[in-house]
Design a protein around this nucleic acid. Sequence first.
RNA 1: CGAGUCGGCUGGGCGGUCGCGUCGGCGGGGGAGACCCCGUCGCCGAGGAACGUCCGGGCUCCACAGGGCAGGGUGGUCGUUAACAGCGACCCGGGGUGACCCGCGGGACAGUGCCACAGAGAACAGACCGCCAGCAGUUCGCUGCUGGUAAGGGUGAAACGGCGGUGUAAGAGACCACCGCACACCGGGUGACCGGUGUGGCUCGGUAAACCCCACCCGGAGCAAGGUCAAGAGGGACGACGGCUCGCCGCCGUCCUGCGCAGGCGUUCGAGGGCUGCCCGCCCGAGCCUGCGGGUAGACCGCUCGAGCCUGCCGGCAACGGCAGGCCUAGAUGGAUGACCGCCCAUCGGGAGGCCGUGAGGCACCCGUGGACAGAACCCGGCGUACAGGCCGACUCGUCCG
Length: 125
Amino acid sequence: MLPAQARLRRRPEFTAVVRYGRRAGRPTMVLHYLSERPEQPAGGSPPPTGARAGFVVGKSVGNSVVRHRVTRQLRAVVRAELHRLPVTADLVVRARPEAATAGSDLLRRDLVAGIDRLLPERVRR
RNA sequence: CGAGUCGGCUGGGCGGUCGCGUCGGCGGGGGAGACCCCGUCGCCGAGGAACGUCCGGGCUCCACAGGGCAGGGUGGUCGUUAACAGCGACCCGGGGUGACCCGCGGGACAGUGCCACAGAGAACAGACCGCCAGCAGUUCGCUGCUGGUAAGGGUGAAACGGCGGUGUAAGAGACCACCGCACACCGGGUGACCGGUGUGGCUCGGUAAACCCCACCCGGAGCAAGGUCAAGAGGGACGACGGCUCGCCGCCGUCCUGCGCAGGCGUUCGAGGGCUGCCCGCCCGAGCCUGCGGGUAGACCGCUCGAGCCUGCCGGCAACGGCAGGCCUAGAUGGAUGACCGCCCAUCGGGAGGCCGUGAGGCACCCGUGGACAGAACCCGGCGUACAGGCCGACUCGUCCG
């Protein structure tokens, strides 16, 4: 599970990552990645404390119970991989309907493969 | 033992590793302060439906100057409640051998509308067949005309009370008994209504989830309510730089504005707004309305102690109410309450063929499978809907034994 500080909390942050970030599609999810966070126009934005992640689970995935379960599985999976991203990075994970029936193992494989494609060669482990 | 009716409870358990949120303790840091941040420890952390948002309330804001008309809701009676379209008991009607179940259950001599098709005839009824009488004809089978008749046939959702008898040419509440109906009286019940007696021979329908009439009830919007505090997002012009598909995009700086543009109405001869809608009336009153384009919704309070939950006693057939004692039980805001693993228990599938039993079957063993419906968002009371299974209680009918 991710602390609230490591999650995207504002709508503009989501739209920035989804519109300007790099994309990587996997069967169960689509990753949007922005390595450098844009300047906060409001000023006084806190210094970068680590990579952040946000989740988008639409109604096409399932009913409320299914959506919550997928979100929680994704949060747990992302938590284990977030340290690989630079401290200024934002990641948005958008779940596809196939994620509803996939287990945590499959979600983890898709996430790792997606991050490998997004990160430049020199940053890989 | 079999078949069934009603009601209640439950909604996987234990452990481990790693995490999340509120609150509290301790330590550290920042700040003038309010307070915030980090680390660590501890407590607590989804449901019976949290769901649908169909009713009813609390709470908040607006209004409180009323009257008339319109509109909406409810509909056996009596209770219950903060309130209800809920719940309880009872009444009436219908179904079942029974436990029990079902019913949008006021009014059709206040008025209006509708009642298809079939049928001879359908709301001041109606002779198609049939039955009976008379007359005429006759090939003695019957036929025609006139009249009587609503018992029978046929049509229909429904045919002018039902059934049996008396009666009659055949028939008919014409008359009689029973049942039904209407009215009156008596008795019982708070009441819906029920029981009894008498009288009347008794045509005079259905539909009000058709208009309508009657009785009772009903201000509007909703926690994005509402309050406090912060902040400007954005747009335009000019200029520099970068990119390329060469006139657009990205980005930076300065200036202007602090939603912009266009149109309409108006400041006591009053726009517009409020009093649920309309009219009358009343109040507030200097800005308001429309179109196009664009933007924002941050923090804190509200926010969880409440018609609250548990236990016991008392009143009541019950719904429910009263008293006493105890308890504190989620408060998120891109939205915590989780992820993974092991064992066990339901469930289902397969194997082996062990034990018990005449048998259907039951118990035990091994392997696999694997948990119904569904996620709080201001809070309650209901209703409705979804749901793998498991447990408990009361009662009815049938069969067997004693």
